[in-house]
Write a protein that binds this DNA or RNA. Structure first.
Lengths: 209, 209
DNA sequence: TGACAATGAATGAACGTTCATTCATTGTCG
DNA sequence: CGACAATGAATGAACGTTCATTCATTGTCA
């Protein structure tokens, strides 16, 4: 993930982080042992220490990677033709990323960790502020939102949007096995589309509803 | 908390859970050692095992207590004269409980734990469903919400409301020291009032706004 | 051969849990 | 009432285990 690398030499850092994500999502940061990560990655314990100073560095690197992923989603969202589509991209990014599915449990754990690890907190806060600024700008620019005194100022709307997104992520971890990721995504979209239309549509025309 | 008890004999279970809440909020479930809890409670380690089978039982009991607290908040919310007031009670309960302040970090940790501990997951799911059903009923009954096709069916509105509540809780753990609990509460209320008015008010009259 | 990647046994600290022991309180009997 | 027996709440040192971290050794390729 970080440095460009030839094919023959595997990018160890990335390989380790991939394995760590699987473990973290399954067991959480602190119940995951270094042995768990090494086993998942198919390497030895000691090798992890060649690429990361210690376990905390692995956690921080994961937060850092998450930050980069969110930034990329934000970039993609900015390209979308309509505000609604932009928001939907942002909204569903966390359950159905193409490459690395960002597991809800991992993100919830990330916030829990942030609440007591200042280094992680700074990273997460940074993600959030960047993303929030992006969305605020997106809203300001969008023609759909021009007559929006209803939902408040763009920044207030953005705050609301992020609260809903994080909230659904939190509820996501409770959804039992009986629901697939796709079903959950659909359910989330349904509720949030209603919110958009409520925030942005002046009166009757409730799309999707 | 559990059995009635005279004043001279302290309710050990409750005392231990109080101490555990402080520790859990500060360090998280799994970084909190039994020694931490005993030190916080001012008792010996061994005594904890007289009242709880093991550490997991302490965590479960905490989740259970949280469930009871939420139920009480729900009861209080149902007494409120208007829907808005009901919702505000529910909404701000998690940052300013009178007796035991339910720390955001603890709740986030609770959800993280729920994602991998079925026993805790069942408890949290149960809370959520009870509360959600209560709010759905509250909305159905409220005159303010009668003409509410805007926000969707009562249950959809309830789902949205809970997503926002959980989301703000999650964002809460990032709020740096520069904000007091009261300030955060005000900020939350501001955003959510806007949501209510957006969901329930037909057109112009935006109270609070 | 030399340089570096990789291994996994070894280390020691920290943790959850147990249990032999202490001792204030309560109950009993003369 | 006073002496003694019984109780069980409370203690904290000790145990076995797990875990992050280290490092001597081995493997690999130029």
């Amino acid at each position: 993930m970080s440095q460009p690398q030839t094919d023959s030499v595997p990018d160890r850092r990335c390989q380790i982080l991939d394995a760590a994500l699987v473990c973290f999502a399954k067991r959480g940061f602190h119940q995951t042992s270094m042995h768990d990560i090494s086993a998942e990655a198919g390497i030895s314990v000691g090798l992890i220490y060649r690429y990361f100073e210690n376990k905390e560095a692995v956690i921080s690197a994961m937060a850092d990677r998450h930050k980069k992923e969110i930034s990329e989603v934000l970039q993609r969202a900015k390209q979308a033709p309509t505000l609604l589509e932009s928001l939907e991209i942002l909204f569903t990014a966390h359950c159905c990323e193409e490459q690395t599915p960002v597991v809800s449990a991992f993100v919830v754990d990330l916030y829990a960790e942030a609440s007591r690890n200042p280094r992680v907190a700074d990273l997460v806060r940074d993600v959030l502020q960047t993303a929030m600024a992006g969305v605020t700008e997106l809203i300001s620019r969008a023609p759909e939102a021009q007559n929006t005194t209803r939902g408040g100022s763009p920044i207030e709307v953005a705050e609301l949007i992020f609260a809903v997104a994080r909230g659904m992520l939190m509820l996501d971890v409770l959804r039992p096995q009986e629901m697939t990721a796709t079903e959950r995504r659909e359910r989330q979209l349904q509720v949030t589309r209603r919110l958009w239309s409520c925030l942005f549509k002046p009166e009757a025309e409730l799309a999707y509803a």
